[in-house]
């Protein structure tokens, strides 16, 4: 019985260790995701319709989305860089909601990276040259976690502050929907 219990605890511990795939001992350079924008990266695509026969859209993966530490860091930057001042805890305020399924400027990591770095014309300031790129990728991972787009075992749980929305690790994934930018001041991100 005691052996069984010990085995259970051991297997739980092992499982707990497996909850994310950490890549340790890699250089800072290698841990950075490929640059999503600019002449060498994959240009973000903001519509699902492509002229002519279909060509697979290059996707940038953000390794930070697989690491709880980076998502949690993103959550911290989200407050420290005043993202929460405009987007609240995901429901939106001066800026649009981030926890819903509506996206003007694309839901892929490279799209969100571009929105943060470039800014957007209807009010989103540019944070390029203000926030280090590595931190932007952490923010990107956190922003996607707000609508359940990162794995629940990596997403953050409820924090030690005033209860706001459902914690990210209990947020059901909301498949992204494209939203028009036709009217200035319209919602979406």
């Amino acid at each position: 019985m005691r052996v069984l219990a010990a085995a259970c605890v051991a297997s739980l511990l092992v499982l707990a260790c497996e909850r994310e795939d950490r890549q340790l001992h890699q250089s800072a350079e290698a841990s950075k995701p490929p640059i999503a924008i600019g002449p060498t990266g994959a240009p973000p695509q903001l519509t699902s319709v492509q002229a002519g026969p279909s060509i697979a859209e290059p996707r940038t993966t953000n390794p930070d989305e697989g690491r709880a530490y980076d998502v949690a860091q993103g959550k911290q930057w989200f407050k420290w860089y005043n993202c929460s001042g405009c987007h609240a805890n995901g429901g939106g305020d001066k800026g649009p909601a981030l926890m819903d399924d509506l996206w003007i400027y694309g839901a892929q990591p490279q799209n969100i990276f571009a929105s943060i770095v470039e800014g957007r014309p209807n009010g989103m300031p540019s944070f390029g040259r203000r926030i280090p790129e590595a931190q932007v990728w952490q923010l990107v991972a956190y922003v996607r976690s707000m609508s359940g787009l990162v794995a629940s075992d990596v997403a953050t749980s409820r924090d030690d502050r005033m209860q706001t929305k459902t914690p990210e690790n209990r947020t059901k994934a909301e498949p992204p929907k494209q939203q028009s930018t036709a009217s200035p001041g319209e919602p979406g991100k």
């Binding site: 609240a88 805890n89 939106g92 305020d93 909601a97 819903d100 706001t164 929305k165 459902t166 319209e186």
Partner: peptide, 20 residues
């Protein structure tokens, strides 16, 4: 009225600085 005019997500009670 920002919850309507800004299409805010009221599942976050702190949206619109608490008006949600």
């Amino acid at each position: 009225g920002a919850v309507v005019s800004g299409d805010l997500d009221v599942r976050d009670p702190t949206a619109a600085t608490g008006f949600a």
